[in-house]
Amino acid sequence: MPRLKKEAPSQDPIEQDFLDAIDRLRDGEPKNKQLKVRKAKGTLKVNVANVALEAGHSRTLIALETGCRYPRVRELIKQAKTGHSRLPTTLNEVIARLRAENAELRVQLNTHKAAVLAHFNARDKAENEAARERAAASRLRKEIAESVKVVVIASREA
């Protein structure tokens, strides 16, 4: 089976510098002296400032939210921050990811089905109880109507 390409090749040497810097930071092997010190301290992170420092280019090329000159680099940095890896490179990885997602969705579906069933049972029980109460109230009204007898009580003064 053919393998999927990791990503499209870079046409711009500056973008390639940024991509190489991201790879070095992910691997924990920076070339920049300041970043080597941060690595020794254990505070090395993949972020816009560190990638720009490692690449040797201005941070503003990748830091702007809108009008970013290298949006693909910015997206890779965001993915590295959140811990998401790049897109799967083989079909087996795609299949494994889809199977895991499918399993999660099945669990959610079963949870929602259980909640709906509990709601349905509670509503059915309440409707049955309301029908019994209406029937009892009707019976009581009927009994009261039948048992009403007018009794004249004579007063003592008369």
Rank of each mutant, 00 (worst) to 15 (best):
V107E: 15
R38Q: 14
V150G: 00
R97P: 00
L76V: 01
N92P: 03
E29W: 04
A96N: 01
I95L: 12
A154W: 06
A130F: 05
A40W: 03
F18R: 07
S138K: 15
R156S: 14
E101C: 06
A63M: 00
E93G: 02
L98Y: 07
R26S: 08
T60I: 07
K5I: 13
A49H: 13
A118M: 10
A135Q: 13
A154G: 08
K6A: 14
V73I: 11
R132P: 01
K36W: 00
G56E: 05
D20G: 10
L44D: 04
A130G: 02
P9S: 13
N128Y: 12
Q108T: 11
M1C: 12
R106M: 12
A158N: 10
A49C: 01
S138R: 14
R134S: 12
E101D: 14
R106H: 10
N121C: 06
E157I: 07
E65S: 07
V37C: 03
L53A: 05
A8E: 15
R97V: 01
S138P: 00
R3P: 02
Y70K: 00
V151S: 06
P13G: 00
K33H: 10
T111Y: 06
R59W: 07
I144A: 12
N128K: 15
H84S: 11
K81Y: 00
V51T: 03
I153A: 09
H112I: 02
Y70L: 05
D27F: 00
H57I: 00
K81D: 01
L44Q: 07
T43A: 02
K31R: 14
I22C: 10
I153G: 01
A126V: 02
K149D: 09
F18N: 05
A154V: 08
L19E: 11
H119V: 10
T90Y: 02
L44C: 05
V94C: 11
K33F: 03
Q34E: 15
N47L: 05
K78I: 08
N50R: 02
I22T: 03
A40I: 03
P71I: 01
R99T: 08
A118S: 14
A8R: 14
L19Y: 10
E133D: 15
T60M: 11
K39L: 14
A158I: 08
I95N: 03
N92Y: 13
V150P: 05
G83C: 10
L64V: 11
V51F: 07
A135C: 02
Q11T: 14
A8M: 13
G67Q: 07
A52V: 01
E104N: 08
A55Q: 05
V73P: 04
F18M: 03
E146L: 14
V51M: 04
V150R: 06
K5C: 12
R59T: 09
R3G: 06
